[in-house]
Design a protein around this nucleic acid. Structure first.
Lengths: 120, 120, 120, 120
DNA sequence: GTGGTCTAGACCACT
DNA sequence: GTGGTCTAGACCACA
């Protein structure tokens, strides 16, 4: 349960992982996320690296620090994460993807109708 | 046309730029691409960076070096680029994008209706 | 009245709060301050944290412990707090603030015209 | 030339130091700031610590990264720093200071007329 | 040369 | 117990 792509910083991958869990409701709002030390030891990575990931989420307002207690999922984090990630996707990722699809003369509609794991 | 994203290496961005131009037929097969020096001075980047991008395209068989003359788009480059990039896109890029679309519960219709350059 | 800045220890913030109340005469000399338990439960913080704040004030001679009865504002506490805090303010806090005002080239008139709770 | 208060993180002190230099025009806009390694070695601190300070300034838009080249003072940084720091001071620091001055029954006008280094 | 990332380990303040 | 900070040293990608 601890394998990381090495073309992307671990702390970014971890941030995305936690964010996905918040999105999916796997960690409820108001609930504590696993402590820095715990994640570090389970995933066999450095506490600093975990800290960096968590700090990013705090900066985005999805996590809250409570001094001496730990980090907690902020109220409204699930909804906030959803709209914030949607906006990022629509503004940044999708336009580029769309451009590439056109350049490669592929069919957007057909691509979108694919299921995950499919190979056209 | 001299601004670069700083989250991706310049030489990769430049490679993609040239590749897109080949795909779009903006540089015909057999035609010369701008010299390393010219690109470097116009884009105000290091000649080594330009060289690196060109070398990648040579390695992929899309450009040809002719000693003393410069770099030229290889015969069949447009078609080769198309199939090779399609392969890469379908295998690496699209699955992740598709997964993200599902995770964010985005609307297929809305995605289809966006055109290049649009904002939602 | 239960939100704390997270860039300063809670026990210090609490100490300042009580001290301000003594200065302002909100808690008269000889009067009891709210019990550790009461504050802890009202403010939803750890009793140890409250204790720490109270202990600081005891050390400064502003509060007195009476076994089995609680903590009381010491005789002469208001006057003592005043001179002691003035000293600290003039020696430590104000010089830095003054330097910053000069560095930011702020207008004395504007600063004077602001009242508590104002925004520029 | 490398002594730090130990009640505040070094990286914050360093950030403030660089910010002050930008404010004072000691480092002109477009000019490079000393490299992470250079500062680290001169000040006898860890490169990571320097990095953290610089990263903050990048986040605030006062510094710009140029890949492989270093960090540069952004265009308009001096003015931006001035207004940004002013706003922070007026909104956060001054109101609290004003409240304290009143609680201590001091005279704001007299305090403001003090010169740096004075003792009333 | 530049900054970015990571590790291993330490110490601190806070609750 | 919690997170925050710092060190010393390493390796990497980029220009």
């Amino acid at each position: 349960m601890g394998d990381w792509k090495d073309n992307e910083p671990i702390y970014l991958q971890l941030r995305d992982l936690v964010l996905t869990q918040i999105l999916g409701g796997l960690i409820a709002e108001g609930e504590a996320v696993p402590s820095v030390r715990q994640v570090a030891s389970e995933e066999r990575i450095n506490p600093l690296t975990v800290s960096k990931a968590y700090q990013l989420l705090v900066d985005e307002g999805l996590l809250e620090k409570r001094r001496g207690l730990g980090m907690f999922v902020a109220q409204g984090a699930q909804q906030a994460a959803l709209s914030q990630e949607r906006e990022r996707f629509l503004n940044e990722e999708w336009p580029e993807t769309l451009a590439r699809i056109h350049a490669l003369q592929l069919d957007t509609e057909q691509l979108l109708s694919m299921q995950i794991g499919d190979r056209s």
